[in-house]
């Protein structure tokens, strides 16, 4: 459940990231309250993955502040990372470790005392129980994705980020991940879901952040997005909103 005065699950203030003369993200600011599911969308190269990698503490910002549950990722990375889970696009596993050993390591890394029951439950939920002792190198693309998702859920983080979470998943896997995201969000977990599958974003997300060329084009609720980019048409699809928002003439929004 969301605490009355809980800090935002994720908070980004004036985030800049540049690689020499190339600006990947410029002046991005947003806050994700607990329990919200934020859809992060934008064309290729818009800065979505860069933003998530910076929030995960993998890349340092050129300027700006990034916080996880109030903890500065740059100043207090260990506490910030301890409250976050990040599942990258095409997660790569330790080939010589079994599925269960991945969970075992993650439990140790995030100091989860008794992880066994939760681990077994997650494996069963994602239909990985028969593959419990299989080597990661023997798994299909979709199964590897499921293992990474199970690892992310194991330590019950307060904020989660998924980069293209549905890639390679079978219909049952897709249904399961959608259900788990909704359930965890109801418990107060803040989510960022980056995906080009706009139907997924429309289905799951309560808020929307549209990036284009490293800048925020829109940040707000889905209805606000329709009001801003689809002439307020309540039945306008997110696809329509997306194309209008990222069209060359679109101006940066709030």
């Amino acid at each position: 459940m969301t605490q009355p005065h809980a800090p935002p699950a994720l908070e980004v203030a004036d985030f800049h990231k540049a690689y020499g003369p190339t600006v990947a993200v410029a002046g991005l600011s947003f806050a994700l309250p607990p329990g919200e599911v934020l859809g992060l969308v934008g064309p290729n190269g818009a800065g979505k993955t860069t933003t998530m990698r910076a929030l995960a503490g993998i890349i340092p910002p050129t300027r700006g502040t990034l916080r996880v549950c109030g903890f500065d990722v740059a100043a207090d990375p260990v506490r910030a990372k301890g409250r976050l889970a990040y599942v990258p696009d095409d997660p790569r596993l330790f080939e010589s470790l079994t599925v269960w050993e991945h969970l075992r390591f993650v439990a140790a890394a995030y100091r989860v005392a008794a992880f066994e029951a939760e681990g077994e439950r997650l494996l069963a939920r994602f239909e990985l129980a028969p593959k419990r002792d299989a080597l990661a190198g023997e798994l299909s693309r979709g199964m590897r994705q499921k293992v990474a998702i199970c690892c992310a859920y194991l330590h019950r983080p307060a904020a989660m980020m998924f980069d293209e979470p549905l890639t390679g998943l079978d219909p049952m896997g897709i249904r399961t991940i959608k259900e788990t995201i909704r359930a965890r969000a109801a418990e107060g977990v803040g989510f960022i879901i980056s995906s080009h599958l706009l139907s997924l974003v429309e289905d799951l997300c309560t808020r929307l952040l549209i990036l284009n060329q490293g800048r925020a084009v829109f940040h707000g609720g889905l209805d606000e997005a329709r009001a801003a980019f689809a002439d307020g048409l309540a039945d306008a699809s997110l696809e329509e909103v997306f194309f209008r928002a990222t069209a060359p003439a679109a101006e940066p929004g709030p």
Binding site: G57, I58, F94
Partner: peptide, 15 residues
């Protein structure tokens, strides 16, 4: 760092 180490260790709470 091997790719799996980047994906698992970098976002994890290690110094």
């Amino acid at each position: 760092f091997m790719p799996a180490e980047v994906d698992f260790l970098f976002p994890a709470p290690f110094t």
